[in-house]
Amino acid sequence: MEIQLFDTTRDIDASRIDADPATVREQIREYESGERTEFDLEVDYLEGFTGRVMRAMVDIPAGETRTYGEVATALESASIAVGQACGRNPIPVIVPCHRIVGVDSLTGYAGGLDLKRRLLEHEGAAIPGEP
């Protein structure tokens, strides 16, 4: 399913969300307008390590970030494995992989670093490496 967010189009795997497309799009619109900071959608997480990382992502409040290393430490894993799991997130924005950053830079995002920066700015999060 395609969603529109900040003048970009993102694909998400709607089969992983227990809601109709209109509800998903409405919550995305509310997020973009600042009416919503969290999504009220039931998510079917992936199995295994990627699912564990996805659950860690949703535990990061809007306006905050965690580094790949912090998430890796919490999950007793490696930073690179966390980054790879972030890249496999089938429902970005709803499961906020944009909130996982490098120690001193934004570092990779399937939607592009400009969108990652915009999402973090929208949430009022500090951006690593920027004043």
Rank of each mutant, 00 (worst) to 15 (best):
M1Q: 12
E2I: 14
L5P: 09
F6Q: 11
D7M: 14
T8I: 14
T8K: 15
T9P: 00
R10Y: 08
D13N: 14
A14H: 05
A14T: 06
S15Q: 15
I17V: 11
I17Q: 08
D18N: 14
A19N: 06
D20Y: 00
A22K: 08
V24Q: 00
R25P: 10
R25I: 13
E26Q: 12
I28A: 12
I28F: 10
Y31K: 15
E32R: 08
E32S: 13
G34H: 11
E35H: 09
T37L: 03
F39I: 12
F39T: 08
E42G: 02
E42K: 10
E42V: 04
E42D: 14
E42H: 07
V43R: 13
D44V: 10
D44L: 13
D44A: 15
E47N: 14
F49Y: 03
G51C: 10
G51E: 06
R52L: 13
M54C: 10
R55H: 07
R55P: 05
A56W: 03
A56H: 05
A56Y: 04
M57T: 10
I60D: 12
P61D: 15
P61A: 09
E64A: 14
E64H: 15
T65F: 11
T65G: 09
R66K: 15
T67C: 11
V71D: 06
A72S: 00
A72K: 00
T73Y: 03
T73Q: 11
A74V: 01
A74Y: 02
A74H: 03
E76T: 07
S77Q: 03
S77G: 05
A78D: 13
S79Y: 07
I80P: 00
I80N: 00
A81C: 00
V82W: 00
V82T: 01
Q84E: 06
A85E: 09
A85P: 14
A85K: 07
C86F: 01
G87D: 03
G87Y: 01
G87I: 01
R88W: 00
R88H: 03
N89Y: 05
N89K: 05
P90D: 07
P90W: 06
P92G: 15
P92H: 12
V93I: 15
V95Q: 13
P96G: 05
P96D: 02
C97M: 03
C97W: 00
H98C: 09
H98S: 08
I100Y: 06
I100Q: 06
I100A: 08
D104M: 06
D104F: 05
T107E: 09
T107M: 07
T107W: 04
T107C: 10
Y109W: 06
A110C: 00
G111M: 10
G112F: 02
L113R: 04
L113Q: 06
L115Q: 04
L115V: 04
R117Q: 03
R118M: 08
R118W: 02
L120Y: 04
L120V: 01
E121Q: 10
H122G: 01
H122M: 02
G124K: 14
G124M: 08
G124C: 10
A125R: 02
A125F: 04
A126V: 02
A126F: 03
I127H: 09
P128I: 00
G129V: 12
